[in-house]
Design a protein around this nucleic acid. Structure first.
Length: 485
RNA sequence: UCCCCGAUAGCUCAAUAGGUAGAGCGAGCGGCUGUUAACCGCUAGGUCGUAGGUUCGAGCCCUACUCGGGGAGCCA
């Protein structure tokens, strides 16, 4: 068979040459023996640097010594384009360097694995809705200003008129749901929030289903089936990638319905409870113990280095371990520093505020399944969310928090379907009702209970892959203070 | 906008108490018939982020700035 690809790694060993070739679908060790190919071919391939493109032809054979268990016994090979001094070496690199070389970094194993999983996630999302009677409706990206959160919209010049990049397709979807019953949209979303965190992008991908004739329990059930099906698909299709990434496969296997259900008031009780104080204190002790263990290892290595007399390979091993240790210790320091702040925020949490990032983290760390938090205070939420008729201080909404501290991946709600209630809310927020005529019309002509939610693709991919920063979960990330390419 | 940390070879990092810069990877050359981030030998490669200051002497101390990382705030 013939393989077209790039040199991922090359190891000469006298008259045998091992070239790991990357063909886009994976890696394959190719073995070139001096006697089997001409001397010119052997020498030419031997000289190819990392990421040189080439064609190799040979026979596939089982070989236990090869990574992956099979290898290609090469009978012929030819360079397509040699590469010299490829910048990303098989060594550790910093974030800045890797992301400023994003165009090349995309070829490395980690981004490749994440990209494959992202692809599965997106395919599974479409499959789920298509298989469950939803109709895809593409909502516009250019949108007119309509009250809600204008300060977080990107403004563009639309032939002299101000327009904005869409930050949700929801209002449009509500119209479409009254036509098709069950609909979804899937596309890029733009937020001009000044959020500099590992969980925020200014341009990200979001899928939003919207369903007519549904209530809050129905929405939660839809969301947990949906998320479980996406996670299940990744477990089925990308196990090898998850393993390479070191993702928490056992944790992902627990992602099955039903998820945990808490109300916002439950969450506040938990946050201000003795249980949380204890939980955070234990966590702090754990961090300190981990730090002490790492520092002990560090001291031991440094002492051994100082003492001398180490074999060369031992020195190198130490040299590799030291920066790792320092990084881990620095990360723990951050956690140790933040822990009391989070404890204070949680303890002083008062009913009515929106849950902060650290509050979400605490709640999700206490569970190994995703957690729904429902019924937030009306004052903290958008005007279109349906007021709970049995407790008008709250709305029928929910957030879904991914487990183990990853935080929010879904936000959704039942929509206010009563004309008068909705009009009152529009006025309360100080919006101009004339801007919402078409939206109010939906409540005038055959209004029905309906609702939906939005799921952030990059946050979901980050959670599933165990990648701590969302910027690694999209090929070309756009962040508040940084556009790499 | 605020807080913390950092910037030394292409990359990742080191440099005892302030005394004139090193190691691995990568690159080049040579060696090795089963390598697994291979290994062994040799070679090339640096205005220590920028500007100023302290000092006989600054990579190291001080000030300002620039860039980067982490966190907070804000926020589907």
């Amino acid at each position: 068979m013939t393989l077209n690809g790039w040199v991922y790694n090359s190891r000469p060993s006298g008259k045998v040459l091992f070239v790991v070739v990357r063909d886009g679908t994976g890696l394959c060790q190719c073995v070139i023996e001096a006697g089997t190919v001409s001397e010119e071919v052997f020498e030419a391939v031997k000289r190819l640097g990392q990421e040189s493109s080439l064609t190799v032809t040979g026979l596939v054979r089982a070989e236990p010594r090869s990574p992956g268990g099979v290898e290609l016994a090469v009978t012929d090979a030819a360079a397509i384009c040699p590469a010299v001094e490829y910048p990303i070496t098989p060594k550790e690199h910093g974030v800045e360097f890797l992301m400023s070389n994003r165009h090349l970094y995309l070829r490395s194993q980690r981004p490749w694995c994440i990209g494959r999983i992202r692809h599965t996630v997106i395919d599974a999302i479409r499959r789920f809705f298509n298989d469950n009677g939803f109709t895809l409706v593409d909502t516009p990206i250019f949108t007119a200003a309509a009250g809600e959160g204008e300060q977080t919209l990107f403004e563009v010049d639309y032939f002299g008129q101000p327009m904005f990049l869409s930050q949700t397709g929801q209002l449009y979807l509500e119209c479409a749901a009254m036509s098709f019953g069950k609909v979804y949209c899937f596309g890029p979303t733009f937020r001009a929030e000044k959020s500099k965190t590992r969980r925020h992008l200014t341009e990200f991908w979001m899928v939003e289903p919207e369903v007519a004739f549904i209530n809050l329990p129905g929405l939660l059930e839809l969301a947990e089936n949906f998320v479980s099906s996406v996670v299940g698909r990744v477990l089925k299709d990308n196990r090898a990638e998850l393993e390479t990434l070191g993702a928490d496969i056992a944790g992902l296997e627990k992602i099955t319905p039903p998820f945990v259900r808490l109300t916002y008031s439950d969450a506040v009780d938990i946050l201000t409870s003795e249980r949380t104080v204890k939980f955070l204190a234990e966590q702090l002790e754990q961090f300190k113990a981990q730090k002490a263990a790492l520092e002990a290892e560090l001291a031991q290595i440094e002492a051994a280095d100082k003492k001398g007399g180490l074999k060369k390979w031992q020195q190198e091993k130490n040299a590799r371990r030291l920066p790792e240790l320092r990084g881990e210790i620095a990360e723990l320091d951050t956690k140790i520093e933040n822990n009391p702040k989070h404890a204070e925020l949680a303890a002083n949490f008062t009913w009515g505020k929106d849950l902060g990032g650290s509050d979400e983290t605490i709640i999700s760390l206490m569970h190994d399944k995703p957690v729904f938090v429902t019924h937030y205070p009306r004052s903290a939420k958008a005007f279109y969310m349906k007021t709970d008729r049995s407790n008008p201080k709250v709305v029928e909404n929910f957030d879904l928090l991914a487990p183990q501290g990853f935080g929010e991946v879904i936000g959704g709600s039942v929509r206010e379907d009563d004309y008068d209630y909705l009009l009152r809310r529009v006025n309360e927020e100080g919006y101009n009702p004339a801007d919402y005529n078409w939206y109010l019309d939906l409540r005038k002509y055959g209004s029905v209970p309906h609702g939906g939610f939005g799921l952030g693709v990059e946050r979901t991919v980050a959670w599933i892959t165990g990648e701590r920063h969302i910027r690694q979960c999209i090929a070309f990330p756009r962040m508040m203070d940084k556009v790499y390419l």
